[in-house]
Amino acid sequence: MGLLTEQQLHNLAMNVVGKDLEDLGYEFLAVNSKKSKNPQFVATKAKKMVFVVVRAVTYPDNPVIYNEELLQKVSKHATSFEAKTFYAGVGIANSISYELPVDSEEDYVLNYSGLIEIK
């Protein structure tokens, strides 16, 4: 197997955030697993729509720090749908040593603080 690709890391992050959204009671209207297409999730709960941008973040980068310009662009688009915008960064690291790349043969640790609302 070997090292996880950017897309595999992104898919892992998508699974974490998708499960969180389900647990929070959201229903999915659209899911886009391509990192280059934003938002990754469009979901609804109690007739309120949300746009969620998902990023897999590898050590030493901080998963709660996001691209302000990108998120403002998505937020502006969401406003036309009366939707709120959230960022969901999922930190992923090799559990043996954070310095090592994430490998499919080894355990990994996740650092996910939940949805961060973009205002």
Rank of each mutant, 00 (worst) to 15 (best):
T79G: 09
G2P: 00
D107E: 14
E22R: 13
V52D: 04
L21C: 06
A43S: 11
A93K: 15
T5G: 03
M1Q: 02
L9D: 03
E106L: 15
N32T: 01
E105V: 02
S95W: 11
I65Q: 09
E117H: 01
K35L: 09
N94D: 14
E68I: 00
V57P: 02
N67D: 15
Q8R: 00
S33F: 05
N11D: 14
E69S: 10
F41A: 02
K76Y: 12
G18H: 05
P60A: 10
V64N: 07
K45D: 07
S75D: 15
M14G: 05
K48H: 12
Y112Q: 04
N62H: 00
I92R: 06
V64L: 04
N32F: 00
D61A: 13
Y87D: 06
L9F: 02
V90H: 03
K48N: 14
D107R: 05
N32C: 04
Y59E: 07
A83I: 01
Y108F: 15
A13I: 11
V16R: 10
T44M: 12
K76I: 07
K37F: 09
L24N: 08
K45R: 15
M49T: 15
A13F: 11
K47L: 12
A46I: 03
N67K: 03
L29D: 09
Q40D: 03
V53G: 01
Y87P: 05
F51I: 07
K19T: 11
I92N: 08
Y59F: 15
K73N: 10
V102G: 05
K73H: 08
V53T: 10
F86Q: 06
K34S: 12
E99N: 13
Q72K: 11
Q40H: 03
G89Y: 06
T79Q: 13
L110W: 01
F51P: 08
M49L: 13
G91K: 02
L12V: 08
A30K: 14
K35H: 09
L3S: 11
E27R: 12
T5D: 01
Y66T: 01
N11T: 00
V50A: 11
F81L: 07
V109K: 12
S33C: 05
K73A: 11
K119Q: 10
I118Q: 01
V53D: 05
V16P: 09
E105K: 12
S75T: 06
L9R: 00
V53H: 01
G114D: 06
L9C: 03
A88L: 04
I118N: 01
N62P: 00
S97C: 12
P60E: 09
N62D: 10
K34M: 07
Q72H: 11
A13Y: 11
A56S: 15
D23H: 11
E6R: 10
L12N: 13
I116L: 14
N67A: 03
F41V: 01
T58F: 06
F51M: 09
D103M: 08
Q8E: 13
R55V: 03
N67T: 00
E117G: 05
M14N: 01
D61N: 12
E82G: 04
K37Y: 09
A83P: 02
D107N: 13
L110T: 05
R55S: 14
M49H: 09
L3E: 15
